[in-house]
Nucleic acid binder design. Structure first.
Length: 527
RNA sequence: GGCGGCGUAGCUCAGUCGGUCAGAGCAGCGGAAUCAUAAUCCGCGUGUCAGAGGUUCGAGUCCUCUCGCCGCUACCA
């Protein structure tokens, strides 16, 4: 039994929830569910980042106080987690008073450690934005939002001595090539560090909407510093006892590539300064691209997942994203692709497999899953070895966060079961059985022998489906729950926990199950 | 410019330590079967593995160079 603490980034409420948020949260949920199945002590955290200039401005534009504004917008992000079926254990908001207090404590620690000092920051400042711009971010030398010329300004800020951590960060990376995965992201971060780190300003004098610097209330803490600390602060006040001891450090921080620098460099340095253990791994997943381009609102090529989820449920969405795109790499998604995979893989291959299996058990055995033929050990099933291999490999891949590889491994087995039906041809076995039974008379041994082939086939299929409910639970939990009902298995007491991974062992199918027919798991999408 | 990555069948992509690695899925064509959501299964690919050179008994798989894409290159979430 291990410990598993996984996080998504906390989402910036100024943005509108989009497929990227749903993707990250889904992926984190897959990992969290899998580790619960292993029996690990799991904590899965997500939440929202609610401070900063943009939020302050958005609120002002609506004539609301910032807090009123974020209280409203945060609901949309809570809905994302709920809609994708995420089993997050807590939802943190950086406006939680407990978080704010903790951020101040932590920053104070860094200050006391001598890693924060006052200096002046100079740059190009747009008064309308109340923000600084670097030259690259200007459009023809003008503010991209207001079209006005920024002025050169200086402000007194507190700086974090990031440069002092260069050697320790280098050592961290050199000592653990898996600190950031996949490897090319590790290279990126390391090369950034080796180019030389400069101190960073971690406070703002012109902004009000933030957490004030404890020793100088005229300034607020830079929003990224505020945000990163959520991974730590949450454990101090999320429901439950001793969460720090139970869960720190994080097993995985999940994120997209745009925020690697903050998580891979600033965050470890802050933790070093404040004296905390470092996260074990950062995992950087790719972007979902539509039509070969990175999705962006300005390009108008954003794929909105929420109508699809409303219409088809969370499972098909989760399945599609994690199956279509190699986890850790960029990939293309489209509504067309969604429908294609939904129909071919979920409806035809998996859904129909469940249909045909339960239907044949009903038709040939009155709905009762037969016992395996007398004298045939579970391990003698033609599928036993493949099933065991599939479960082992998928487990290893899930442990390594190779989510799409795991799904691929599992799907080979789904297809194997369909092929098995064709190979055994139960309808043919049923005819042969009828003939053999007619010839067997009352001889119990001959009756048993006559029934053995079809019994074996149906039992194998039911057992194969049962295994699938275990290994697919992390990806499509509502579906596997429904499959278990159809197979006549007892529902899990805790739906978010799912069946224990140890049940992914061939031969554990309980005796005496009665299958239940049902509407198609995935009705085909007809166009 | 520097660092990193990518360029493999019509499409989307796998290819861990160099030796059945030339593959999968989709799309297309042909066939079988009928338990099932007309759902399944089987068969069919002459691809210069971007190009050139090199190392090696042997290279998509290592090295060099060229071409074409992409990411990162500091405080914009």
């Amino acid at each position: 039994m291990g410990r598993f603490y996984i996080t998504t980034p906390i989402y910036y409420v100024n943005d509108v929830p989009h497929i990227g948020h749903a993707y990250t949260t889904s992926a984190a949920d897959v990992a969290a569910r899998f580790h619960r199945q292993l029996g690990d002590d799991v904590f899965f955290l997500t939440g929202t980042d609610e401070h900063g200039t943009k939020v302050e401005q958005a609120a002002a534009a609506r004539g609301l106080a910032p807090k009123e504004h974020v209280d409203e917008v945060v609901q949309k992000f809570k809905e994302v987690a709920q809609k994708v079926g995420a089993t997050n254990d807590f939802f943190i908001r950086t406006t939680d008073p407990e978080h704010e207090r903790f951020v101040q404590e932590l920053v104070q620690r860094c200050y006391d450690a001598g890693d924060i000092y006052k200096s002046s920051y100079s740059g190009l400042y747009c008064g309308a934005c109340e923000a600084y711009y670097t030259e690259e971010n200007l459009v023809d030398g003008l503010c991209p939002d207001h079209g006005t010329a920024p002025v050169h300004m200086e402000e007194e800020n507190y700086f974090f001595r990031l440069s002092a951590f260069q050697d320790r960060l280098t050592a961290l990376y050199r000592g653990d090539p898996d600190f950031v995965r996949p490897r090319h992201r590790y290279n990126e971060a390391l090369s950034f560090i080796e180019q030389g780190l400069e101190d960073i300003s971690i406070s703002r004098a012109t902004l009000k909407w933030g957490i004030s610097v404890p020793w100088d209330p005229s300034q607020v803490i830079y929003v990224w510093v505020d945000a990163l600390i959520n991974y730590l602060s949450a454990l101090h006040y999320a429901p439950g006892e001793d969460l720090m001891d139970r869960f720190w450090p994080p097993s995985y921080h999940l994120m997209a590539q745009d925020i690697l620098k903050f998580h891979g460099i600033i965050w470890p340095a802050l933790l070093m300064s404040a004296g905390y253990e470092l996260p074990e791994h950062l995992f950087v997943h790719g972007y979902l691209k539509l039509g070969g381009e990175k999705m962006s609102k300005t390009r108008g090529n954003v794929m909105d997942p929420f109508p699809l989820i409303e219409q088809y449920g969370a499972d098909p969405f989760r399945f599609y994203c994690l199956r279509e795109v190699s986890f850790g790499q960029d990939g293309m998604v489209s509504e067309e692709g969604f429908k294609s995979r939904y129909n071919t893989e979920l409806a035809n291959e998996l859904g129909n497999l469940v249909s045909r299996t339960t239907s044949m058990i009903s038709k040939y055995r009155g709905g009762a899953v037969p016992a395996p033929p007398a004298g045939r050990a579970a391990a003698d099933s033609p599928l036993a070895a493949e099933a065991a291999g599939m479960a082992d490999i998928a487990r290893g891949q899930l442990e390594e966060m190779e989510l799409s590889n795991a799904l691929d491994t599992i799907w080979v087995f789904v297809r194997r079961l369909n092929r098995y039906v064709e190979e055994q041809a139960p309808w043919k076995q049923a005819k042969e059985e009828a003939a053999a039974l007619a010839a067997a008379g009352d001889d119990p041994q001959r009756v048993a022998a006559a029934r053995a082939p079809l019994d074996g086939t149906l039992w194998d299929l039911a057992e194969g489906l049962r295994l699938l409910t275990v290994v697919l639970h992390p990806f499509i939990p509502a579906t596997t729950a429904s499959m278990r009902v159809r197979l006549g298995l007892e529902p899990e007491p805790d739906a978010s926990a799912g069946p224990a991974w140890s049940e992914a062992t061939w031969g554990l199918l309980p005796a005496g199950l009665v299958v239940a027919a049902g509407a198609p798991l995935f009705p085909r999408i007809e166009e």
